[in-house]
Simulated assay, not measured.
Amino acid sequence: MRKLPGIFFLILFLWSSSAFSQQNPDNDAFTFGEELNFEVSYGWLNLADAKLQINRRSHTQNNRPHYKIDVYGKTKGAATIFGKVNDNWGTYLDTNTVLPSLFYQNIEEGKYRKHEKVFFDQKNGKALVELYEKDNKTLKSAKEYDLPGPIQDLVSGFYYLRTLNLENMKPGEVVLIKGFFDKEIYNIKLIFEGTERLETEIGIKDTYIFSPQIPKNKLFRGEYPVKVWVTKDQNKIPVKIKANLFLGSLNFDIINAKGLRNN
């Protein structure tokens, strides 16, 4: 149970980052100051809160303006019995290329700690991974990895997808996706299932439905155990995620959205 917020963002990562061949995305979907809040439930239990937040101002990396984007996951209520979780993932996303220059994660799950930074050299196809001690100050190790061209991270891929045109996708269409996370390159299939009108906490929304192919593991049930509903509008925000587990299912439902670029 203590891994629930992490599952949420892993799902977003597997769902995102498609169509990397597009070199000059036109972003009219998000902007500085956007904030999306979700509630994670298992059956009738509300287990965690999750938040995706874009900083209100531009940040400079490699002499270029970037979005600083943070995602947070925190257990609450009954879930804390299994161990408290207070996780933070983040990215510095180039405002022009919509590619990451820096990814970081600060994981606090019970007594477990993980602090990591990944510096991306998109031009030369390299990623430098720095792992830190529990104090998040002392460098523990550093290793460089080769990348197969432009690539996204756990957080940035979701925002990159939001810049793409989804209107012409047909049910059953398969999109191959690539991303770099936890020192590995991911190649995942994304299936477009169609559209649906959905009632949410932020109103009735017309949505696209996607199912990412999840690598075999002991947590999820079936080859395509996850469905993601994303709004069929200029904002393209996720409003619901359902993940079928071997026992029951998890639901991630949006509870509010602030600072959207398009009203």
Rank of each mutant, 00 (worst) to 15 (best):
M1G: 10
R2T: 15
K3W: 06
K3F: 09
L4E: 11
L4K: 02
P5L: 06
F8A: 13
F9Q: 11
L10W: 04
F13A: 13
L14C: 03
S18L: 01
A19T: 10
N24Q: 13
D26H: 10
N27M: 08
D28F: 02
G33P: 06
E35K: 14
E35V: 14
L36S: 07
L36Q: 07
F38T: 02
F38M: 04
E39D: 07
V40M: 14
Y42S: 07
W44P: 00
W44K: 07
N46M: 00
D49P: 09
A50S: 12
A50G: 13
K51Y: 01
L52F: 15
Q53H: 10
I54W: 01
I54D: 01
I54E: 01
R57W: 01
R57N: 11
S58L: 05
T60S: 10
N63W: 03
R64P: 03
P65G: 08
P65A: 07
Y67K: 05
K68V: 02
D70V: 03
D70C: 01
D70S: 13
Y72D: 11
G73Y: 11
G73S: 11
G73P: 10
K76R: 14
K76A: 07
A78F: 12
A78T: 12
T80P: 05
I81M: 13
V85C: 09
Y92W: 14
D94Y: 06
T95M: 15
V98E: 00
V98P: 00
S101V: 00
S101C: 06
F103V: 02
Y104K: 03
Q105W: 02
E108G: 12
E109K: 06
G110N: 06
G110Y: 05
K111S: 13
Y112Q: 07
R113Q: 13
R113I: 06
H115E: 03
F119S: 08
F120D: 04
F120I: 09
Q122M: 15
Q122D: 06
N124F: 06
A127F: 07
E130R: 14
E130K: 15
Y132V: 11
K134R: 13
K137Q: 14
S141D: 14
D146V: 08
G149M: 04
P150A: 02
Q152E: 12
D153P: 13
G157R: 03
G157L: 05
F158C: 03
Y159G: 05
R162F: 01
T163G: 00
L164P: 05
N165D: 15
E167S: 14
E167V: 04
E167K: 13
N168V: 01
K170M: 12
P171T: 04
P171G: 09
P171L: 11
I177G: 11
F180E: 06
K183M: 02
I188F: 05
K189Y: 04
E193Q: 14
G194K: 04
T195G: 02
R197M: 05
E201L: 06
I202H: 05
I202T: 04
I202V: 15
I202P: 08
I204V: 15
K205W: 03
K205H: 10
T207M: 07
Y208M: 09
I209S: 05
P212V: 12
P215V: 05
R221L: 15
E223M: 06
P225T: 09
K227H: 12
W229Q: 04
N235P: 08
K236V: 00
K236L: 03
A243K: 01
N244P: 00
F246M: 09
G248Q: 02
D253F: 00
D253H: 03
I254Y: 08
I254H: 08
G259K: 07
L260N: 12
R261V: 03
